[in-house]
């Protein structure tokens, strides 16, 4: 490393011959060397230096104030749980901390820029690779080591050590992999808790739905009717993930066709709410066009036409839940879906 005392000094690194195919260019300009160093105002004017010193001290002082401010804000503003109260605490603390940090940051940078040495230095680089001798020595060391271990001469040992090392990860992997996937019963994708006679209920209230409740143009977000206490468990959330249904009543004349024969009741149709693309809840029902739009990736399904895809990245129609009414006039399922709901997977049709 050398200080650039002679910035105008010529450089020699111009013409180079490298044996890797590029044409050596001899007709090149000469490197003019590192540009001249210009002293800063603070280097030559003690007044300017003094002024900068004061600015730096002031910035550090501001930082101290910020820190004190943050502690004061912490103790003085107690978030009361209301939105404005928590916001007051958050904003005051955040701004005070920012002042404290900015003070230090600006002071340090200003110090470095104005008062610390700004002289450039030039340091030599060395090749990134080690020398031939070192490489040779290392090679020899490895050779010697291998020779010493005798692994080349003792093939049985070679096989043994490779086998042992290759097998040992199984001690961890087997228990891990076999436990981590739960019961591995991937067949559960096929079924939901809907079955013949399950009543339809409003989500989230759980009230039952009468066919007469639904006016034309209505949409209802529906869950299967299970006792309220059963709805407070993980099993329920997992089941609900597959069982949610969108119930729509439209003018029977608007139906272009029914996807599943005899599955609707008086213009009321129920379709799985889980997108056949990647499983978002499809729920944007446009009453006039009967289009059902997924807000995640904009697959659009035509509810009037068997929920077939009219736009977007989904391929298959939404599975339909066959419904009818029971003796008391409540909407009930006639059966489970007749295909797995949600996104496609490899063995879906099996």
């Amino acid at each position: 490393m050398s200080e650039n005392q002679n910035p105008q000094g010529p450089s020699r690194d111009v013409a180079r011959h490298d044996g890797d195919g590029t044409v050596a260019q001899t007709d090149r300009f000469v490197d003019p060397g590192v540009p001249e160093h210009h002293p800063r105002l603070a280097d030559v004017d003690p007044k300017a230096a003094k002024r900068n010193e004061r600015i730096i001290a002031l910035l550090f002082a501001i930082s101290c104030l910020g820190t004190i401010g943050s502690v004061v804000a912490y103790f003085a503003v107690r978030p009361d749980g209301t939105t404005p109260g928590v916001r007051m605490s958050t904003v005051l603390l955040g701004v005070a901390i920012a002042v404290s940090l900015f003070g230090i940051g600006f002071a340090a940078v200003h110090w470095a820029k104005t008062l610390m040495s700004a002289k450039e230095y030039t340091e030599e680089r060395h090749s990134s690779s080690s020398s031939e001798e070192v490489r040779g020595a290392v090679q020899q060391q490895f050779k010697d080591g291998l020779e010493d271990s005798g692994i080349a001469r003792r093939p049985v040992l070679k096989g043994a050590v490779v086998s042992a090392l290759a097998l040992f990860p199984l001690t961890i992997a087997v228990p891990l992999v076999s436990s981590v996937g739960g019961d591995w019963n991937v067949g559960s994708f096929r079924h939901t808790i809907w079955k013949k006679g399950t009543r339809l209920a409003y989500d989230p209230s759980g009230r039952l739905i009468k066919a007469s409740d639904l006016t034309v143009g209505s949409v209802a977000h529906v869950i299967p009717d299970v006792p309220a206490e059963e709805r407070e468990s993980h099993e329920w959330i997992t089941e609900k993930s597959k069982a949610v249904v969108l119930l729509v009543r439209m003018d029977p004349r608007d139906h272009k066709r029914d996807h599943r024969e005899g599955a609707s009741y008086d213009g009321i149709v129920a379709y799985s709410k889980i997108c056949t693309h990647v499983g978002c809840p499809v729920a944007l029902y446009e009453q006039q066009t009967h289009h059902l739009l997924c807000p995640c990736h904009q697959s659009t399904f035509d509810v009037a036409d068997g929920a077939k895809v009219v736009f977007g990245p989904a391929k298959r129609p939404l599975p339909q839940l066959p419904i009818t009414v029971d003796d008391e006039g409540y909407l009930v399922a006639e059966d489970d879906f007749n295909e797995p709901i949600g996104p496609s997977y490899w063995e879906r049709l099996k």
Binding site: S11, V34, F102, G105, V109, A112, S117, Y121, E124
Partner: peptide
């Protein structure tokens, strides 16, 4: 003066490290 065989700049201590530290506080800020 900048070639593939050298590096021209400022020594880590003090100016460069101070700037770097200052940058941390500015970013955190």
């Amino acid at each position: 003066g900048r070639t593939d065989k050298n590096v021209v700049g400022y020594p880590a201590v003090p100016a460069f490290a101070t700037k770097m530290g200052g940058n941390f506080f500015i970013i955190f800020g």
